[in-house]
């Protein structure tokens, strides 16, 4: 009986790993650029599909992770440079452009990939069965948690220990002053949007190996990432960590005890946060 709960908690942590990678990308872009990237779910899906093709062609999962992440970063770069940059500062057209992009990506995915649900094959050497203190659990899920923690640490390092991070944090507070100080804010926007795309692509490969990829899945993923950043507070990295931990457990336990409402349940913390603390757990007033 106890074992069952430990497994559920571990499942929740695995879920949190994906939610964090998803949510941190979205929250970074929102915090600095005030853009809600509504194609985040489509980025995830495209990254996952690209990774799936790489695994199918080469069988090399780490390469798939790399390709999935980098190609979405490139896509983010191109999209930011050619389109988003043209309507800079007007939040609504920016959002609408990301909506249009998500429509296009979702439809293009239908052309190239299966219409049924697919899952990336994880090679055996990445997925050993690990037994810790009598609890047996797939090693790949531990790997996902480790990757997610590594991502969190590197994001923290980038944001708080590098010059780029300083400029980003300053830009969150006051972009006019930052650009007046001679920092090229446009370059920073592009880098952050690329980083956000990278994270979405990575999440796609991770999620596609753990869950599955299917047409129309992009909207579910987008919603999950939105809930993560609404609960955690928009623009807050710590908020993304905490809220993905909470939501992961809710999803895991919900699936076990109330499968009929597993997806519905994750909106309860969102409703509570909106009612009691509208800026999110760690967000500030916008």
């Amino acid at each position: 009986m106890e074992l069952k709960y430990i497994i559920l908690i571990l499942n929740g942590l695995t879920q949190s790993a994906i939610l964090f990678v998803l949510g941190s990308g979205l929250t970074l872009a929102f915090g600095l650029m005030r853009v809600v990237n509504l194609s985040h779910g489509a980025f995830y899906m495209l990254g996952g599909y690209l990774g799936w093709s790489v695994v199918k062609a080469t069988g090399n999962w780490p390469l798939a992770l790399l390709v999935g992440g980098l190609s979405i970063a490139l896509l983010g770069f191109l999209f930011e440079k050619t389109m988003l940059g043209r309507v800079r500062g007007n939040d609504l057209p920016e959002t609408l452009l990301t909506v249009a992009l998500s429509m296009i990506i979702a439809d293009v995915c239908l052309v190239f990939w299966a219409r049924t649900a697919i899952t990336l094959n994880v090679p055996q050497y990445l997925n050993p069965t690990i037994t810790i203190l009598g609890v047996t659990y797939p090693g790949f899920r531990y790997l996902m948690m480790v990757i997610s923690i590594l991502i969190a640490v590197s994001l923290w390092f980038i944001l708080y220990k590098t010059n780029l991070g300083k400029a980003v944090r300053a830009g969150v507070d006051d972009r006019e002053t930052v650009s007046a100080l001679g920092i090229n804010i446009n370059k920073i926007y592009t880098s952050v949007f690329m980083l956000s795309g990278l994270l979405a692509g990575l999440a796609g490969v991770l999620g596609g190996s753990y869950l599955q990829l299917s047409p129309g899945g992009d909207t579910t993923i987008l919603t999950l990432s939105l809930v993560v950043i609404i609960v955690g507070g928009m623009g807050s990295l710590l908020g993304a960590v905490i809220s993905s931990l909470i939501l992961g457990q809710i999803m895991s336990f919900g699936l076990a005890f109330a499968p009929q409402y597993s997806y519905f349940l994750i909106f309860i913390p969102m409703a509570l946060v909106l009612a009691l603390r509208p800026q999110g757990l760690f967000g500030r007033q916008i």
Partner: peptide
């Protein structure tokens, strides 16, 4: 796809 492009 067509609608998305028109939208853009």
């Amino acid at each position: 796809l067509v609608l998305g492009v028109v939208f853009l």
